[in-house]
Write a protein that binds this DNA or RNA. Structure first.
Lengths: 374, 374
DNA sequence: TTGTATGCGTTATCAG
DNA sequence: CTGATAACGCATACAA
C-alpha cells in the first residue's frame, strides 16, 4: 500500500540549470557547447516551431500581435519539449524577479503559520514567489540586517517584516529605502488609520468587556514588548481604565509563551482582590488559567480572563476562552497586497480594516459569581 | 516613541535589478547604457580596485590563488561601493541557484511553523535559500503539480514536500525524478529504517502506556488519512492491540482539527465501556476532552487520553496532556539536510533517529480511578 | 506580424 | 597569480 521509497530521487539528480559541459578542445575557437542541458530553451522552441525566439517570448508572455496560428505552433512546441521559462535568465534580462521576501522570527507559532498562508495566497495570485529569511535573535539588529541582505541578494523586490523591529538605524533605513518594506507592526498596530486590525480597539474591547461586567479594575498580562502590538495594547488598556476613572494597576509582563503566562498567573493568584485580567494572547491565557486554578481560584467564578487571537484551541480551553479575534490570514493578505502595490507603484489598494471581534465564551463573568455560575 | 511610518518606503521604490535605461538614439551603433543601475556590478568593483572582473569574482567566491594584497584591495572596493552579488546573474552563469523549495498545505498549524524553523536553520547554514509554494487542496494532484512547477521555474534545486502526497503518478514522478525531493511523510513514517521519528513507535508507546495502566482496550481517534503518519499510527495501534490479544475496536476518524476531535469525543462518550483513547494529535485531544467532560465523563478518572506532538499548550490543558513528543524542528532539520545531500550528491548524512518520548502528565490513569484520583 | 541584434551581471575557460 | 573573453537564457528596442 505504501509503495513509496524513502526519498524520491536517484543517483544523479540534475541541477535545474545544469552547469555547462566541459568544453572540448579544438584548434580554432569553439563555443562552449550550447544548450547541452536537459532543459530546452527558447532557442529550441523557436527552432521546433519554425519561428524566432522573439516570437516565442511574445507568445509565452501572452502579448498580442501574434497570429493565432503562429501562437498555436509555438505553444505546441512548448508543450512537446516541456519548455519552461528560466527564471534567472528572465530576471537578468528584465530586471524583475517577482520575488517577495519575508523576514520572520524563528519561533514556532500558530500565528506565523496563519499569516504566511495569507501572504502566500496573495503572492501566488499576483504571480509572485515568496522566500523567507529567519531571524533567530530578534533583539539583534545585525541578524535583521543579515536577513534583509540575504533577501536582497536573492532579488526580493519587496520585504514583509513579520518580526518585531524596534530599531531603525541608518543601516536598516538604507535597506528599507531601496526595497519597499512593510512592517507587520504597523499594519496591525493602528499607528496610522491605514491598518487591518487596530490593536488599540482590541485592547479596548477586552478591557471594556471586563469593566462592563462589573469588575472594578482590570489587570493586564502583556506580551513581549519587542512587539509593537504588545505596547499598543498595554497603552490602550491603561487609557481605557483611566477613562473609567480607575488607576491602572502595574502591568504583569510576559513574553507570549504559555509558560510566561503561567508565571504571570501565579502573580495574579497572589493578589487577593484581582478579579479580572486582560491577557495579551490566548496561549498565555492557557498558562494564566492553569496557575489560577492551581492556586484554587476558579475562572471565571473568582477571576475573569479575556485574551486575544482566538486560535483554534481557544474554544477548547477549560473554560472556553473569551477572546478578541485576530484575522491572521487577512493580515497576511493585506501585507502582501501592500508590498505588491508598492513594488508595482500602483495606487495602494484600500485596506479594508477588519474590526476586531469579541468572542464571548466561558472565561469571563461578573465578579463574585463564585457559587453562582457553573 | 513610535516614530515609524506605516510602511517604510517612498514614492519611487527601486526594483532590485533595475530595468535598463531607454537607449539614446545615435547614428551609428550605440550600446544601451551599461550599468546605469544604482547597484554596482563586478565591473565597478573591478575598476575601483584596478583589477579584472575575474579577480573580483575569485575574491568574492573565496577562491585561493589571489594575492592577499589584491584581495584586500578588492574587498575594500566591495565595501566602499556596497557591492552585492546579483543572484540571478550568478545562477545564470553557474547553473546553480542554491534554492530549496518547500511545498506546504495552506492550513495554519503549529507544526508547520515549527518544521519550517528547522528547515530554515539548516538551509541558511548551508548557504541555501528557501522558497515556499502553498497548496490549498491537498486532495488535488494538479495543485501539487502546479506548486512543483512554480518551484522548478524559480530554480529550486531540491524540494521538500511538507504535505500529504498520496498519489505518485507519472506527472509527479517526472518531477521528482529531475529534482531531488524529500517527502516528509517518509522521513517520519518509518517506512524505511532511515527515519527521524518512527511514527510506529509513537503509536506503540501511546497504546502500550494505556494498556500497562490496566485498560482492557484502547480506542483510537485518527488524523486525516491523507497523511501517512496517520495511517502508520493507526496500523501500529491495531497491531499492538492484537499482540496483546485484544480485538481492535473500530477507528474513530477525524482530521487533525480540534473540532473533529470534539466530534470524535462525543462518539466516545456514547460508548459506556470506553476507558482509554489514543488520539493522534494534541489539538484533537483538546476537542476530545472537552466533549468527554461535557458528557459528564472526566479525564482521566473515567477516560484516559494520550495524544501525540507535545505542542506548547499540551502542558496547559486541563488536565495536562500525557502525550508522545514529536521533535518538529529536528524533523525539519533532517529534511533539509537530506535534500541538500541529494543536491550536492554527497554521502547522505546519517540521520539520527530521535526516539519518540512519552511525556506522562495528567490525562491518563488506571481505569476506574473515579473518586480515587484528584 | 515577425525577425535581428544586443545586453543583463556573473562564472568558466584558457592563455599569459 | 591574473586577465580576456565567451557563454548562460531571456527580453527588449528597433528594423523589416
Amino acid at each position: 500500500m505504501f509503495a513509496f521509497t524513502f526519498s524520491l530521487s536517484h543517483d544523479a539528480p540534475t541541477a535545474p540549470f545544469p552547469a555547462r559541459q566541459v568544453s572540448v578542445h579544438y584548434h580554432g575557437w569553439m563555443p562552449r557547447r550550447h544548450n547541452q542541458s536537459q532543459s530546452p530553451s527558447q532557442v529550441d522552441v523557436a527552432r521546433a516551431a519554425g519561428v524566432s525566439t522573439q516570437t516565442v517570448s511574445r507568445v509565452i508572455s501572452g502579448q498580442a500581435n501574434v497570429r493565432p496560428e503562429t501562437a498555436r505552433r509555438v505553444l505546441a512546441a512548448v508543450d512537446e519539449l516541456g519548455y519552461r521559462v528560466h527564471a534567472a535568465a528572465a530576471s537578468l534580462a528584465s530586471g524583475r524577479t517577482r520575488i517577495l521576501g519575508v523576514i520572520e522570527v524563528s519561533t514556532a507559532r500558530y500565528s506565523t503559520s496563519a499569516i504566511n498562508v495569507g501572504i502566500e495566497t496573495v503572492a501566488s495570485e499576483e504571480g509572485y514567489t515568496v522566500t523567507t529569511a529567519s531571524v533567530s535573535d530578534h533583539a539583534s539588529p545585525d541578524s535583521f540586517l543579515d536577513a534583509f541582505d540575504r533577501l536582497e541578494r536573492q532579488g526580493a523586490e519587496g520585504v514583509i517584516l513579520l518580526a518585531p523591529v524596534t530599531f531603525l538605524d541608518n543601516a536598516m533605513g538604507a535597506r528599507t529605502e531601496r526595497t519597499p518594506t512593510v512592517l507587520m507592526h504597523h499594519l496591525t498596530s493602528g499607528v496610522g488609520t491605514d491598518t487591518v486590525v487596530d490593536q488599540s480597539s482590541i485592547a479596548r474591547l477586552a478591557t471594556e468587556h471586563l469593566l462592563s461586567l462589573g469588575h472594578r479594575t482590570v489587570w493586564h498580562v502583556s506580551g513581549d514588548d519587542y512587539w509593537l502590538e504588545s505596547r499598543v495594547r498595554r497603552q490602550t488598556w491603561e487609557q481605557v481604565l483611566i477613562e473609567h476613572g480607575v488607576t491602572p494597576p502595574p502591568v504583569i509582563p510576559a513574553d507570549w509563551t504559555p509558560e510566561s503566562g503561567y508565571r504571570a498567573g501565579r502573580t495574579i493568584a497572589a493578589i487577593p482582590d484581582a478579579t479580572a485580567v486582560f491577557v495579551s494572547s490566548d496561549e498565555m491565557a492557557f498558562g494564566v488559567i492553569r496557575a489560577l486554578h492551581e492556586a484554587g481560584r476558579t475562572v471565571p467564578d473568582d477571576v475573569s480572563v479575556v485574551s486575544v487571537d482566538d486560535i483554534a484551541l481557544a474554544a477548547y480551553a477549560a473554560p472556553a476562552l473569551t477572546t478578541v479575534r485576530q484575522p491572521f490570514e487577512a493580515v497576511g493578505r493585506a501585507a502582501a497586497t501592500r508590498v505588491i502595490d508598492l513594488i508595482e507603484q500602483r495606487e495602494p489598494s484600500p485596506i479594508e480594516p477588519i474590526s476586531a471581534e469579541l468572542i464571548v465564551r466561558a472565561s469571563t463573568a461578573p465578579p463574585g459569581s463564585a457559587g453562582t455560575a457553573r
